[in-house]
Simulated assay, not measured.
Amino acid sequence: MMTAVKFETLENEPSAFNLYLDGEKIGEMIVEINDGDMTVFHTEVDPDQEGNGYAGELLQSMTSYVRENHLKVIPMCAYVQVQFDRHPDEYADIRSDKEIRF
């Protein structure tokens, strides 16, 4: 079984890192890029696919994209915020100081 993450910006749709398993979409990370920041709003994986590390694949793809494009991340998504808080050293270089805390 092959997974692929694609960063897709479709008309009239939010930008997202979409996760495909054998060609079928099973997860997404909804984002918006504005003024050098990528705001991550939501991460979701199909319930029957949870526990397989797919959210981590989305996180990895997003952070690679952010580093390649010299962006900073505003983690409004609970999953991303928890990962950034758990591993501060790993994400310190890409965490925006414009962060919105809840």
Rank of each mutant, 00 (worst) to 15 (best):
M1D: 12
M1C: 12
T3R: 10
A4T: 09
A4S: 05
A4W: 00
V5Y: 00
V5G: 02
K6P: 00
K6C: 03
F7A: 07
F7T: 01
E8P: 03
T9Q: 14
N12D: 05
N12W: 04
P14M: 07
P14G: 01
A16M: 04
A16V: 00
A16L: 01
A16S: 05
N18G: 01
N18P: 00
Y20H: 10
Y20S: 11
Y20A: 10
D22K: 12
G23P: 06
G23I: 13
G23Y: 07
E24S: 11
E24C: 07
K25Q: 08
I26G: 04
I26W: 10
G27I: 09
G27Y: 03
M29S: 10
M29E: 13
M29A: 12
M29G: 02
I30Y: 00
V31Q: 00
V31K: 02
E32Q: 13
E32V: 09
I33L: 12
I33K: 09
N34E: 12
D35S: 04
G36D: 02
G36K: 08
M38C: 15
M38V: 15
M38L: 15
T39P: 00
T39A: 09
V40W: 01
V40Y: 03
V40G: 01
F41P: 11
F41M: 14
H42A: 10
T43F: 02
T43P: 01
T43V: 05
D46A: 15
D46N: 14
D46S: 15
D46I: 11
P47H: 13
P47D: 15
D48F: 11
D48P: 02
Q49K: 15
Q49L: 12
E50R: 14
G51S: 13
G51D: 12
G53I: 12
Y54H: 11
Y54D: 09
A55D: 08
A55I: 10
G56Q: 06
L58M: 06
L59S: 09
L59T: 13
Q60Y: 06
S61Q: 08
T63D: 03
T63K: 07
T63C: 10
S64A: 14
Y65F: 15
V66T: 12
E68W: 04
N69Q: 10
N69K: 11
N69G: 06
H70V: 07
V73C: 03
P75H: 07
P75A: 08
M76E: 09
C77P: 06
A78I: 12
A78P: 15
V80C: 04
V80F: 03
V80L: 09
V82Y: 06
V82K: 13
Q83P: 06
Q83E: 15
R86T: 03
R86C: 01
H87M: 14
P88F: 02
P88R: 04
P88N: 04
D89F: 08
D89E: 15
E90P: 03
E90H: 05
E90S: 08
Y91H: 04
Y91Q: 02
Y91E: 03
Y91R: 03
I94S: 03
I94A: 01
R95Y: 00
S96P: 00
S96W: 02
S96C: 01
D97E: 04
K98V: 01
E99W: 08
E99N: 13
E99S: 11
I100P: 00
R101T: 05
F102I: 13
